[in-house]
Design a binder for these strands. Sequence first.
DNA 1: ATGTGATATACTGTTTGCAGTAATTTCCGA
DNA 2: TCGGAAATTACTGCAAACAGTATATCACAT
Lengths: 219, 219
Amino acid sequence: MSELTPVEVTDLRPIRDIVHEKLRTAIMRGELPSGERLFDTQLAKQLGVSRTPVREALRMLEQEALIVVTPRRGTIVYRLKQEDAIEIYNIRSVLEGLALRLAAQNITHQEIVQLREKLEKMRPLPENLAGYMAVHVEFNSIIIGASRSPRIEQLVASFASQLRNLRGISLTTPERQLLAWKEHCAIADAIESRDAELAEMLARRHVERAKEAYLMQRA
Amino acid sequence: MSELTPVEVTDLRPIRDIVHEKLRTAIMRGELPSGERLFDTQLAKQLGVSRTPVREALRMLEQEALIVVTPRRGTIVYRLKQEDAIEIYNIRSVLEGLALRLAAQNITHQEIVQLREKLEKMRPLPENLAGYMAVHVEFNSIIIGASRSPRIEQLVASFASQLRNLRGISLTTPERQLLAWKEHCAIADAIESRDAELAEMLARRHVERAKEAYLMQRA
DNA sequence: ATGTGATATACTGTTTGCAGTAATTTCCGA
DNA sequence: TCGGAAATTACTGCAAACAGTATATCACAT
């Protein structure tokens, strides 16, 4: 009787959540480009639902700063400016630093093994950008998850995704990509040796480099 | 359920925003205690509006993690656990560190003068907790504002407010209060001398101390 | 008394409709 | 042809009604 876990009442998710997710990914993929005006009535028609769940989804997106709502005027997809990108990189830098400091303390041996596997997978993909990015995402989520801090996880995911639809993501040159890989190796080493301070420092520097690479491209 | 006064339709802000703010402050003040169930129909009646704006407000609060919504089940005010508090302190630590690093770079001379004024105001309030806290909030908002980073500002405000309704906020003992004051002086000095690294370090240590003081109280 | 099933109630999720305001178009005069 | 006022359109904000499901109540059997 003691160890019965509650059932997952996923049932059918409310329409508002489905709409929220749909719009969210559409925005991040750039299918709804920056500056695009959104009409709840139009979205409702397109999605085949009524306006209410659409409006509730818009409230969520508004809270995530993915859209900007001007009362009685309308709603547009937020247009990320360079200063926004800098801000986000700054925040990611310290948050991922924190995440890695905690991860170095909390990561399990098994997770370290997984980490090494991902690293090996990434090594032979010097040119295959898409493949590299996919593994990279897995690598990151293992580490961030090892921080055992859902709030950090959520924040990092949120901010990282906001940059996703930014044109010109860092890993353009092979040199940069190799450098990034080496940085990841160093981070894995630091975590494995439980050096929290070093892991934090490396993570911060890593994001800082990504920021600079981004700024280079549009200088 | 406590006393929620009906909304005044100012015509300027949408009702949903008024409701959002009302609920938000009610939660933070503890008037809507942790674990309290919220019924949109009931809230709508109390506030004298329809369910629609209430529900939109709930979606915003949900996104802020102030409430927890279980679809088809109901809504409760999120009950902050100790691990949540630790998480929030950790995040505040690095975010305020970042804020102060930026502030040291961007603060104006005039803002430094204001900072000094606030510090002087805080000095003669060794026992007047309420007064001290009020000035303290102003002091902080000047510094955080000087980071010139709206996202950081919003995040810090959000996380700080989540801790507000936590029982036993740090400054209980006079010694702790004096220590905090000295820490603030050191921070102001660091900012004034434009030492970004030092300011960041001090800010992080400051929040770290607050965390430890909080943990002490419930040990 | 206790557990089980049926009924009733209450709340959430969604749709629909109505009011008000901003935007757009149309039409008129210069 | 252009500017501006009036009319029209279209969208947002809010309310209320409707549908379905979870919860509570109660009757009844054991």
